[in-house]
Amino acid sequence: MSKPNTLAQDFDFAKVLPEWRVNLDTQELERVFVFKDFKRAFEFMTLCADFAEQLDHHPDWSNAWNKVSVRLSTHSMKALTELDITMACTMDQFALKVSA
């Protein structure tokens, strides 16, 4: 697998990922997803886990009942990359699907 591309210095996180917090010091994206109940949180995590396997890019995450806390970073590059953006955008879409 080839190395993912790092993001441009002027990447507009606020526009692309308005619900995510960006920590440039640690090179991480962070978000807490809140669902109606545990079942929906688990459904979200299952969708994300399947996609992460396909992408071969896995989140650091935890679950507490209806909340899923997520941190994304490309650890092998010690940077945020296109993989993180792809994963974050897909997670946002899965959250909408599960919450609908």
Results as ranks from 00 to 15, higher is better:
residue 91 M to C: 01
residue 13 F to H: 03
residue 89 C to F: 01
residue 39 K to S: 11
residue 30 E to G: 14
residue 59 P to L: 06
residue 33 F to H: 00
residue 95 A to D: 04
residue 56 D to I: 05
residue 97 K to D: 11
residue 67 K to W: 00
residue 71 R to W: 08
residue 21 R to W: 00
residue 62 S to E: 02
residue 36 K to L: 04
residue 77 M to F: 08
residue 1 M to T: 12
residue 74 T to G: 11
residue 60 D to G: 03
residue 50 D to K: 14
residue 39 K to I: 12
residue 87 M to A: 15
residue 43 E to T: 15
residue 83 L to E: 13
residue 96 L to A: 08
residue 69 S to E: 14
residue 100 A to N: 11
residue 74 T to D: 05
residue 61 W to F: 09
residue 61 W to D: 01
residue 27 Q to M: 14
residue 77 M to R: 08
residue 19 E to T: 11
residue 24 L to G: 10
residue 63 N to H: 09
residue 51 F to Y: 15
residue 67 K to R: 15
residue 13 F to A: 04
residue 85 I to M: 05
residue 52 A to R: 04
residue 49 A to I: 09
residue 21 R to L: 12
residue 13 F to I: 14
residue 4 P to D: 11
residue 86 T to G: 02
residue 27 Q to C: 14
residue 23 N to D: 15
residue 43 E to D: 15
residue 75 H to Q: 07
residue 7 L to R: 05
residue 17 L to F: 03
residue 5 N to P: 00
residue 54 Q to M: 09
residue 5 N to T: 09
residue 65 W to F: 14
residue 48 C to V: 15
residue 68 V to R: 00
residue 83 L to V: 00
residue 72 L to H: 09
residue 32 V to M: 04
residue 39 K to Q: 12
residue 69 S to F: 02
residue 85 I to H: 01
residue 46 T to S: 15
residue 9 Q to I: 08
residue 37 D to L: 05
residue 11 F to M: 10
residue 43 E to R: 12
residue 61 W to A: 05
residue 46 T to R: 13
residue 65 W to L: 01
residue 46 T to E: 07
residue 99 S to I: 07
residue 42 F to W: 14
residue 95 A to P: 06
residue 93 Q to S: 14
residue 40 R to L: 13
residue 66 N to H: 11
residue 42 F to K: 05
residue 86 T to M: 10
residue 29 L to D: 07
residue 23 N to P: 10
residue 40 R to D: 13
residue 94 F to Y: 15
residue 31 R to D: 04
residue 65 W to S: 00
residue 72 L to E: 03
residue 28 E to Y: 03
residue 32 V to G: 00
residue 61 W to H: 06
residue 8 A to S: 15
residue 35 F to A: 02
residue 55 L to F: 08
residue 76 S to Q: 09
residue 14 A to S: 14
residue 6 T to F: 02
residue 37 D to E: 09
residue 59 P to E: 08
residue 11 F to A: 11
residue 7 L to D: 08
residue 67 K to D: 02
residue 40 R to E: 14
residue 59 P to V: 11
residue 47 L to H: 12
residue 63 N to I: 06
residue 65 W to E: 00
residue 38 F to H: 14
residue 54 Q to E: 15
residue 67 K to N: 03
residue 76 S to F: 05
residue 38 F to E: 03
residue 6 T to Q: 08
residue 28 E to T: 15
residue 26 T to A: 13
residue 62 S to M: 03
residue 65 W to M: 02
residue 100 A to W: 02
residue 85 I to R: 02
residue 23 N to I: 12
residue 40 R to T: 13
residue 96 L to I: 07
residue 53 E to C: 07
residue 29 L to R: 04
residue 76 S to I: 06
residue 46 T to G: 08
